[in-house]
């Protein structure tokens, strides 16, 4: 299955430093979200907390699926708005002693958003894009550009 979100980055730090940032409670609380119960253990459940926003209550329920220190870690990721949990995967690769390639993928957005993505790729959506929505999005882009 193709990941629905895929981001690649290079960090100018050793692989162990990046790995620690991904798997240490205090580090995660510093850059990702507050967590008090993270433990690097397969099957362990932990919570990430952030500010509630709209219908989102601010809590991510996570569970470690697998890890291979210091190369990869995968966990389930579910908010109150998600019917099924999604999966967050981190893969690290040392480029040199002081450079690390990071590959983040977040997938499993099933149901509603998956359907919408398919719709947007479908012919029906293309027809729609060719008229009303296109203008609408252009206006949006313009207003976004003028805001930034």
């Amino acid at each position: 299955m193709k990941p629905q979100i895929e981001i690649k980055r290079v960090y100018k730090y050793p692989i162990v430093a990046v790995w620690n940032a991904l798997t240490d409670k205090e580090a995660l609380s510093d850059w990702l979200m507050e967590t008090t119960d993270f433990e690097l253990k397969v099957g362990h459940s932990f919570k990430l907390k952030t500010k509630p926003q709209g219908k989102f209550d601010g809590i991510l329920n996570c569970k470690i699926i697998s890890f291979d220190a210091p190369n990869s870690i995968s966990y389930l990721w579910q908010s109150n708005g998600m019917k099924n949990p999604t999966t967050v995967n981190w893969v690290l690769k040392a480029i040199s002693e002081s450079e690390t390639h990071l590959h983040l993928s977040h997938n499993g957005f099933e149901g509603v958003s998956g359907w919408l993505t398919r719709q947007m790729l479908g012919i029906g959506w293309k027809k729609l894009l060719s008229n009303k929505l296109k203008n609408y999005l252009q206006d949006e882009k313009r207003s976004m550009a003028s805001n930034s």
Binding site: I5, A27, L32
Partner: peptide, 26 residues
């Protein structure tokens, strides 16, 4: 409909900003 379809896009923005924060943390 657009509001709903923005949802995935928002998630992508979320991760991009978090990955910047990871850099700051390091």
């Amino acid at each position: 409909l657009k509001e709903i379809s923005d949802w995935i896009k928002n998630y992508e923005h979320f991760w991009l900003s978090k990955l910047d924060k990871l850099d700051q943390h390091l």
